[in-house]
Design a protein around this nucleic acid. Structure first.
Lengths: 256, 256
DNA sequence: GCGTGGATAG
DNA sequence: CTATCCACGC
């Protein structure tokens, strides 16, 4: 049975709610994973989502920083609200009645290369991988969506960007990300589109969108049972171009 | 020759520019006096006003606090930018080619009754009066517009408000304001509307507008030559009710 | 309840 | 360049 899962780093849910509404009305995914909601659970607009046909939700947030959520048309069971010790709101999870596990994930940005934040970022991938090892199986249908804050290869960054040892492109961060993938994940976009160049994030500054100076750092990672059902996976560049949009575009993945 | 002068405490010009534009398009006064622009002179949107048909302007502002300006369809001469020692931006002035002097004025709020800010407020009225005495004559055509931050009588405040000794109603502040009037000013609204109850400010909080719990603290003060020409003076309550409006309404005065 | 500046984060 | 919090002023 067809299932469409979208993921969007909204860069502030309160400031973006009107566009999130537009997105849900026009694209109508079954499930939407949100990152950088920057809103505490008590203020999360559950009612607004319910009015839009998404009455089921799991939110993990703190005021003003990070924060993730999942909203869905259908019931969400076995809510996951944060990794153990996750004070930022970087992982939300749920199981659909049809059995698929969905995660909304916001990896640490890493601040400045070599900083403590960068060290935390590397460590965080290990923590996530271990948590998955202890709890999930690659034989189960899992889709982990979100802003993983890593450009896996140089073709995931626009030509001309500083690559090499940066927070998003270093050997160490790519290794940490690769170890997450080795849990049993494949990148849905790469499965369907091979080495095609595509981005999901364009800085607000310096006309990056106009110049197509982007980064592909938002992904839908799938275990084999969902890889087998992959029907489509694409970046909604139109939504990135909407007035007052997030600096990230939504990524929409359909399973058959 | 007819002259329409409007005054509006906009509570932040940058946040209010769209509504100021609407006001100018729909009401089309010849001159608009602004208070609480909260913008430094370097950032003042002279160009935007010029595009709207108000190419002449005098602005006196600091970042984020107080700030006044006058914008006009016709040339403004003899600019006044602040009282001597006025670091806040509380007085702007200019002379029209037709001879009228226009002032945009933002009296200190006074903070808490009895505070140093309150003492400064009382002193400020004296400074303004003395400055006028040294510079202007009541026989000249002067209109001093703005937020004077005094409710001259108890009928200038909604019933139920705390009056008596407050920053806006104390015996001392009313005396200081009366001494300003004694320069030779009459309150245009009172001249034309007698003891009619009307307000120009309604707090954003507690549904004050809905309950009509207002204050008449924005005025157009006129010397005898302009009193003789008074044709109309009214509060633009509609503009106060616009979405995302200031907490003050414009006051529009017409001279024939 | 709002608008501002400044700090913090991205 | 944008969104958040916080402090401040009103």
């Amino acid at each position: 049975m067809a299932l469409t899962v979208a993921t969007w780093n909204v860069n502030g849910l309160r400031a973006r709610m009107a566009l999130v509404e537009r997105f849900l009305r026009e694209r109508a995914p079954d499930v939407l994973c949100l990152q950088e909601t920057k809103i505490s659970n008590g203020l999360f607009p559950f009612g607004d989502f319910a009015m839009l046909g998404y009455p089921h939700a799991v939110a993990v947030g703190n005021a003003g920083y990070a924060g993730v959520a999942i909203v869905a048309k259908m019931p969400l069971e076995d809510h996951v609200q944060g990794l153990p010790g996750d004070e930022h709101g970087r992982l939300a999870g749920a199981r659909l009645e049809s059995g698929e596990r969905v995660f909304s994930c916001y990896a640490p940005n890493g601040g400045i290369y070599g900083s403590t934040q960068y060290a935390y970022k590397l460590e965080w991938f290990t923590v996530l991988r271990r948590w998955l090892d202890a709890r999930e199986k690659k034989s189960g249908p899992i889709v982990l969506c979100g802003d993983l804050n890593v450009a896996q290869t140089d073709r995931d960054v626009y030509a001309g960007a500083t690559i090499g040892e940066t927070t998003h492109t270093s050997v160490a961060v790519r290794r940490a990300y690769a170890e997450l993938l080795e849990f049993g994940f494949a990148d849905a976009f790469r499965i369907l589109h091979g080495e095609q160049i595509e981005y999901t994030y364009w800085d607000y500054r310096a006309g990056a969108l106009r110049k197509n100076e982007g980064w592909r750092i938002d992904v839908a990672l799938c275990t084999p049972p969902l890889v087998a059902r992959l029907a489509a996976c694409g970046v909604d560049r139109e939504a990135r171009a909407w007035r007052q949009s997030s600096d990230h575009a939504p990524l929409i993945t359909t399973f058959e």
